[in-house]
Deep mutational scan, measured.
Amino acid sequence: NKEKKVFISLVGSRGLGCSISSGPIQKPGIFISHVKPGSLSAEVGLEIGDQIVEVNGVDFSNLDHKEAVNVLKSSRSLTISIVAAAGRE
């Protein structure tokens, strides 16, 4: 599966507009579980089932849900590497 990078700058009070969840035991990782229509996440093409592999240089493969949320909230400017639809297989 091809990795792609998206860049998101949080402007004003707009949030990311997506929710994440941890994958099942047999498929660990952090996946996008919800994308709000019209949100920044939707605008850059994030979709439900995409796996987040890295954010701002932080490897997401071994993070738990709480740590992942903290990384996503730690910066107003995010570089997110995803594997599209990895969670839909």
Score class of each variant (00 low, 15 high):
residue 20 I to K: 00
residue 14 R to L: 06
residue 10 L to S: 05
residue 52 I to H: 02
residue 78 L to H: 03
residue 54 E to I: 02
residue 19 S to F: 06
residue 18 C to N: 00
residue 50 D to W: 03
residue 48 I to M: 11
residue 34 H to A: 12
residue 2 K to M: 12
residue 38 G to S: 07
residue 17 G to K: 00
residue 48 I to V: 15
residue 33 S to V: 06
residue 66 K to M: 12
residue 14 R to H: 10
residue 39 S to W: 04
residue 7 F to H: 12
residue 20 I to T: 05
residue 55 V to H: 00
residue 5 K to T: 11
residue 85 A to N: 13
residue 27 K to L: 06
residue 48 I to G: 05
residue 24 P to V: 08
residue 76 R to C: 09
residue 33 S to W: 02
residue 19 S to V: 07
residue 52 I to Q: 00
residue 40 L to D: 05
residue 11 V to A: 10
residue 76 R to F: 05
residue 5 K to R: 09
residue 32 I to D: 02
residue 2 K to H: 02
residue 83 V to S: 09
residue 45 G to F: 00
residue 5 K to N: 07
residue 33 S to N: 10
residue 63 L to S: 07
residue 54 E to S: 15
residue 16 L to S: 03
residue 69 V to G: 15
residue 3 E to P: 08
residue 88 R to P: 12
residue 76 R to L: 09
residue 60 F to T: 05
residue 80 I to Q: 03
residue 34 H to I: 02
residue 42 A to W: 12
residue 80 I to H: 04
residue 86 A to Q: 14
residue 48 I to W: 04
residue 42 A to S: 10
residue 50 D to M: 05
residue 54 E to C: 10
residue 29 G to P: 03
residue 4 K to R: 09
residue 59 D to P: 12
residue 52 I to K: 02
residue 33 S to G: 05
residue 50 D to G: 00
residue 69 V to D: 10
residue 46 L to C: 05
residue 25 I to H: 14
residue 33 S to M: 05
residue 31 F to S: 02
residue 59 D to S: 14
residue 15 G to N: 15
residue 89 E to N: 12
residue 76 R to T: 14
residue 48 I to E: 13
residue 16 L to E: 03
residue 35 V to K: 03
residue 2 K to G: 01
residue 13 S to W: 04
residue 44 V to R: 10
residue 41 S to E: 04
residue 24 P to Q: 12
residue 82 I to K: 10
residue 24 P to H: 11
residue 66 K to A: 14
residue 82 I to S: 07
residue 13 S to H: 10
residue 5 K to I: 08
residue 79 T to C: 10
residue 87 G to Q: 12
residue 25 I to E: 10
residue 22 S to P: 10
residue 84 A to W: 03
residue 34 H to S: 12
residue 65 H to R: 11
residue 19 S to P: 02
residue 49 G to C: 01
residue 78 L to G: 06
residue 46 L to N: 05
residue 30 I to C: 07
residue 19 S to A: 09
residue 31 F to G: 01
residue 31 F to E: 00
residue 51 Q to K: 12
residue 41 S to L: 04
residue 88 R to M: 12
residue 71 V to I: 10
residue 34 H to M: 08
residue 17 G to D: 07
residue 84 A to D: 07
residue 89 E to K: 14
residue 86 A to V: 11
residue 53 V to L: 06
residue 86 A to C: 15
residue 89 E to V: 12
residue 49 G to S: 01
residue 35 V to P: 01
residue 16 L to M: 08
residue 3 E to D: 11
residue 28 P to W: 03
residue 20 I to Y: 04
residue 54 E to N: 14
residue 71 V to F: 05
residue 23 G to V: 05
residue 25 I to R: 11
residue 40 L to N: 04
residue 28 P to C: 06
residue 30 I to V: 07
residue 44 V to C: 13
residue 30 I to P: 01
residue 85 A to Y: 06
residue 55 V to D: 02
residue 3 E to I: 15
residue 59 D to I: 06
residue 32 I to A: 02
residue 51 Q to Y: 04
residue 29 G to L: 01
residue 51 Q to G: 03
residue 45 G to Q: 01
residue 50 D to H: 03
residue 23 G to D: 11
